[in-house]
Amino acid sequence: MTAAPTGGQYHLRHAGPDGAVEAIVTEVAAGIRELRVAGFDITEPFPVTSQPPGANGIVLAPWPNRVAGGVWELDGERQQLDISEPKYGNASHGLLRFTPYRVVSQSSTSVLQEATIHPQHGWPFTLETRVHHELVDDGIRVTHEVVNRSGVRAPFAIGAHPYLRAGDTPAEDLVVTLDAASAFTVDEQKIPNGTVSVDGTPYDLRAGVRAGDADLDTAYRDVTPDADGIRRTTMHGPEGDGVELWQDESFPYVQVFTSREFPRGDGTGLAVAVEPMTAPANALNSGEGLRWLEPDESWTGAWGIRRVWS
Results as ranks from 00 to 15, higher is better:
residue 1 M to T: 11
residue 4 A to W: 10
residue 10 Y to H: 15
residue 17 P to S: 13
residue 20 A to N: 10
residue 24 I to V: 15
residue 28 V to D: 03
residue 32 I to D: 06
residue 33 R to D: 00
residue 34 E to L: 09
residue 37 V to T: 08
residue 38 A to E: 05
residue 38 A to W: 12
residue 39 G to Q: 09
residue 41 D to A: 15
residue 41 D to E: 14
residue 41 D to S: 15
residue 43 T to W: 01
residue 45 P to I: 08
residue 48 V to C: 09
residue 49 T to Y: 05
residue 51 Q to T: 14
residue 51 Q to D: 11
residue 52 P to M: 03
residue 58 I to M: 14
residue 59 V to D: 07
residue 59 V to K: 09
residue 63 W to L: 05
residue 64 P to E: 13
residue 64 P to W: 01
residue 74 L to G: 01
residue 75 D to C: 03
residue 82 D to E: 14
residue 87 K to H: 13
residue 90 N to K: 00
residue 91 A to H: 14
residue 91 A to N: 00
residue 91 A to Q: 12
residue 101 Y to W: 15
residue 106 Q to G: 01
residue 107 S to D: 14
residue 108 S to E: 15
residue 109 T to L: 02
residue 111 V to W: 02
residue 112 L to P: 06
residue 117 I to D: 01
residue 129 T to R: 13
residue 130 R to V: 06
residue 131 V to M: 09
residue 136 V to Q: 11
residue 137 D to F: 12
residue 138 D to R: 13
residue 141 R to F: 05
residue 142 V to I: 15
residue 143 T to C: 09
residue 144 H to N: 10
residue 145 E to L: 01
residue 151 G to A: 11
residue 153 R to M: 12
residue 156 F to E: 02
residue 160 A to Y: 05
residue 162 P to H: 04
residue 162 P to M: 04
residue 165 R to N: 08
residue 169 T to S: 10
residue 171 A to W: 00
residue 174 L to G: 00
residue 178 L to C: 06
residue 180 A to T: 07
residue 185 T to A: 00
residue 188 E to T: 11
residue 188 E to A: 13
residue 189 Q to A: 14
residue 191 I to T: 00
residue 195 T to Q: 12
residue 200 G to W: 01
residue 202 P to N: 13
residue 203 Y to C: 06
residue 204 D to L: 12
residue 210 R to F: 08
residue 217 D to A: 10
residue 218 T to V: 12
residue 220 Y to T: 01
residue 220 Y to M: 11
residue 224 T to R: 15
residue 225 P to F: 10
residue 231 R to W: 11
residue 231 R to Y: 05
residue 236 H to Q: 09
residue 239 E to W: 00
residue 244 E to G: 04
residue 244 E to L: 02
residue 248 D to R: 03
residue 251 F to N: 08
residue 255 Q to L: 06
residue 256 V to E: 03
residue 260 R to V: 14
residue 264 R to F: 08
residue 266 D to Y: 00
residue 274 V to M: 01
residue 274 V to K: 01
residue 275 E to P: 06
residue 276 P to R: 04
residue 276 P to S: 09
residue 284 L to Q: 02
residue 290 L to Y: 02
residue 291 R to T: 14
residue 291 R to A: 11
residue 291 R to S: 14
residue 293 L to H: 03
residue 295 P to E: 08
residue 297 E to V: 12
residue 299 W to S: 08
residue 307 R to C: 08
residue 308 V to S: 09
